[in-house]
Design a protein around this nucleic acid. Structure first.
Lengths: 212, 212
DNA sequence: ACATGTGAACTGCTTCACAGCG
DNA sequence: CGCTGTGAAGCAGTTCACATGT
């Protein structure tokens, strides 16, 4: 299969959330034009994105909302439940544990880990914080497919190495630094200070096209 | 001035945080090669990124760490303090209010707003939650340059319209949906479910190059 | 000799435009 | 006729390679 651009995958997520929204409202068909308008892109882009995976529409008619939703869920790997652990039970980790949006999408937070003895046993949405020494064992036993990392930056690469060593293949990091993983482990980093810097950059050069 | 790619701005942030780290350790000079190794890019990319803004290095020698840090801070608009308000005092909003990383970078959370009467007056790191009806007035009076949006998706576009109407020019949204702003208002969206979907996409097609 | 700065070549994503099919 | 699906063209971002300056 061809290499799919990250930008394409992001747009597929956007299309899916739009489809689920209008699907819940009872809309049965839609078009690449509709999907484009919402996603802030063009109809050609929508069709090109979908074309990497198959032909899901009917010429002259458009797309069936339930059908296309199902295809996108399958493509994005949402046709199953995923078990996720949160490593780091601080402010952000706790907020994410309680965030309902994950469960709606099939992501179950089934474990939390921290090294601070004061946090052990604390409950977040029915999940108790465990000692981080058990993390490696639990990953090796196949309990989790995805790890969310919300530890201080000093410890982050160290924990990543443990996660990778134990066999995890997907990590979402909130640590504000650049981490490294082997090529077979997917890492995404959300760096909030960096996002704000993108905004101040735009604010500072008060020229045209801030939008991006 | 030429249009700068978003990817370039993101890398500048990465370079800066690396420079500050090694600067704090007393390192005085560095090279495009060093910066590249850390940022997961190439030395040519580093030099090209910097070249959009000037010539900050010495041929044959490299870059002065304090000088390049200062230039990057200036370029990214970090040469001043920014006042930021958080709209939505739920789980994520509260966690962000307490997140120390913002202040370190010159972003001061100086206001919080919510519409839920139960949340009014609650304190987060010394900032009281105010009624959202005051938000428009406070933005118009110039209290904030940046707004962080952590409200439920149903209300998000509505709040964006209020923010934009009151004159805000930069918004960081955590709402899991696509929002629209006029071209002179910069909007960045962090969508955690979408990040996880990027991971499951990679996990599902267990082929090569997961990394991106 | 060494590392920067930069035009030129290249790669890959996006847009165009139209053939194909309902 | 309308909207999809897709090769071809266009464009933007990255990489190359070397001239330039110390």
């Amino acid at each position: 299969m061809k290499r799919i651009a990250e930008s394409t995958v992001r747009r597929l997520s956007i299309y899916l959330s739009f489809l689920e929204e209008i699907g819940a409202r009872g809309v049965l068909t839609t078009s690449s034009d509709d999907l484009a308008r919402l996603g802030g892109t063009t109809s050609a882009q929508v069709r090109k994105d979908l074309s990497f995976f198959g032909s899901f529409g009917k010429r002259g008619l458009g797309y069936s909302v339930p059908e296309l939703s199902a295809h996108l869920r399958e493509i994005l790997g949402l046709g199953r439940k995923w078990n996720v652990c949160i490593v780091g039970a601080g402010k952000i980790g706790g907020a994410l544990a309680r965030y309902a949006g994950f469960a709606e999408r099939g992501f179950n937070i089934t474990g939390m880990y921290d090294s601070d003895p004061h946090k052990l046993g604390k409950m977040y949405s029915g999940v108790a914080v465990q000692d981080i020494v058990h993390l490696e064992r639990d990953i090796k036993s196949g309990k989790y497919q995805i790890a969310i990392l919300t530890v201080p930056p000093e410890n982050a690469q160290n924990i990543v190495d443990i996660l990778v060593g134990a066999g995890i293949k997907a990590i979402l990091s909130f640590a504000p630094l650049q981490l490294t993983t082997p090529p077979d482990v997917t890492l995404r980093t959300v760096n909030m200070a960096m996002e704000l810097e993108g905004l101040t950059f735009a604010l500072t050069k008060r020229s045209s096209d801030q939008q991006y």
